[in-house]
Amino acid sequence: MRLEYFQLLDRIVELDIANRTIRTESTVPQESTIFEGHFPGYPLMPGVLLLENMAQTSGWLIIGLTKFDRMPFLAAFKEAKLRTFITPGTTISTTATIEHEGSGYVIAQAEIRVDGKVTCDAELTFRVVNFPAPELKVYMQKEAERLQFPLGAIANG
């Protein structure tokens, strides 16, 4: 994770296009300027960034489903729960599944687990649109390499 750059994921470890599921793993960094304010003497992973972690995980699943043809943009969270504190150095496992693929939007369910226990979960809504800028598509393809996006899963999905 590089929190300051909104890189909330370390790698995609599972992508199952047929079953519309994905799992990512990420480790909260030991140090970040964010912890200087959140909170002094008691560093905690901000809840909004855990929500972003679930959004990015879900987003990569949608990108996989559209074969890098369309870009998801977060539109809504529902029933978001942050059940426990997550501290620097913690490795989190995030899964997402597609609940509904609509016309131009997707509903997903996501959860974060630590040592097998659910610590965060939410329902997410995305608007799914054509890439609004070619630079963004190039960036996402580059990010896919960093995250070890399994391109074979798309070909076989």
Binding site: A76, H100, S103, Y105
Partner: peptide
Amino acid sequence: SLDFLDIAFAIDKAFGIKLPLEQWT
């Protein structure tokens, strides 16, 4: 438009269809 996504989701589920919102828009 955001609330309409919720409505579209509920309509899609209730009727087993996919409202072609993108085409309409």
